[in-house]
Computed example of a mutant assay.
Amino acid sequence: MSLVNKTKRFFGLDSEAYAYDHDDAYYDDVPRYEGTAAYAPERSYEPAPSYSEYREERPVHHEASIVTVKIFQNNDAVKIGEPFRDGDAVVFDLSALPAEGAKGIIDFAAGLCYALRGHMVKLDGRIFAITPENSALEIEQLKHAANLY
């Protein structure tokens, strides 16, 4: 018997394999349901609630504290992200970074503002501030925290 015929017989693909009566327990199982899924009993589904039903009413103003940060390297972006995620305003100084590194930090801060619905403002040359969505902070308060007055 050739290797090909032995392989066919092993996998049950030869003509003799179809002639055997299977005594395997798999073939004796009774189906768990009658018919197919297309004939399954009808189920009723309620429409999903709209987004406005899930959304809680947010306060008009949030008392946010101001965190000031001086960024020395790109890995210091965490110093901006964590307080902002917690609901605080962050004033950050990028004067110690080269232009390319500063651009990356600004992009990161802009992404934070977009994701958490905050606002970003340039206070001076390389000093920026990001504020949470419902904060009542004025630009003068942010400039005072950055020692620009």
Results as ranks from 00 to 15, higher is better:
53 E>R: 13
145 A>D: 06
50 S>Y: 08
92 F>W: 06
2 S>D: 15
118 G>L: 01
48 A>F: 11
25 A>Y: 08
47 P>A: 12
119 H>M: 03
124 D>N: 14
71 I>R: 08
34 E>M: 07
118 G>V: 03
108 F>D: 04
59 P>A: 10
9 R>L: 14
134 N>C: 00
17 A>V: 05
147 N>I: 00
70 K>A: 09
112 L>W: 03
63 E>L: 01
88 D>K: 06
138 E>K: 05
65 S>I: 04
17 A>E: 11
133 E>H: 11
140 E>H: 06
60 V>T: 13
49 P>G: 11
66 I>W: 00
83 P>G: 02
96 A>W: 12
113 C>K: 00
52 S>N: 04
53 E>K: 10
106 I>T: 09
27 Y>A: 14
14 D>W: 02
101 G>T: 11
107 D>H: 08
26 Y>D: 15
11 F>L: 15
13 L>Y: 14
51 Y>S: 02
128 F>W: 15
45 Y>N: 07
28 D>E: 14
106 I>N: 11
132 P>A: 02
3 L>S: 11
12 G>R: 08
83 P>Q: 04
45 Y>K: 07
127 I>E: 05
142 L>G: 05
60 V>N: 03
140 E>L: 00
25 A>C: 08
70 K>I: 08
149 Y>D: 12
128 F>K: 05
27 Y>V: 15
8 K>Y: 10
84 F>M: 06
80 I>E: 03
7 T>W: 10
98 P>A: 13
134 N>R: 07
12 G>K: 10
62 H>Y: 04
91 V>H: 04
105 I>E: 08
46 E>V: 13
78 V>T: 04
94 L>I: 13
143 K>F: 02
92 F>E: 06
11 F>R: 12
72 F>A: 15
77 A>T: 05
102 A>Y: 12
45 Y>Q: 09
25 A>V: 14
31 P>V: 08
52 S>F: 07
83 P>Y: 05
81 G>W: 01
108 F>T: 03
38 A>M: 12
59 P>I: 09
26 Y>K: 13
74 N>M: 11
108 F>S: 03
26 Y>A: 15
145 A>K: 01
112 L>M: 09
135 S>Q: 01
74 N>P: 03
21 D>S: 11
26 Y>T: 14
37 A>S: 13
72 F>Q: 11
45 Y>V: 10
147 N>A: 11
103 K>N: 15
77 A>C: 05
104 G>C: 07
48 A>C: 07
112 L>H: 03
21 D>F: 12
29 D>Y: 08
107 D>F: 05
73 Q>P: 01
6 K>H: 09
75 N>G: 11
27 Y>C: 10
68 T>Y: 04
59 P>V: 15
132 P>R: 01
110 A>F: 02
65 S>W: 00
101 G>L: 11
104 G>K: 15
143 K>V: 03
86 D>L: 14
148 L>M: 09
36 T>H: 07
126 R>F: 12
127 I>Y: 06
74 N>H: 08
117 R>C: 06
76 D>Q: 02
9 R>F: 10
135 S>V: 00
132 P>K: 01
104 G>D: 14
119 H>T: 00
97 L>Q: 13
123 L>E: 06
44 S>W: 06
1 M>N: 12
75 N>I: 04
138 E>S: 10
41 P>D: 12
62 H>E: 02
15 S>M: 02
112 L>A: 06
35 G>W: 04
75 N>D: 14
22 H>W: 08
14 D>R: 05
58 R>S: 14
121 V>W: 00
107 D>Y: 02
22 H>M: 13
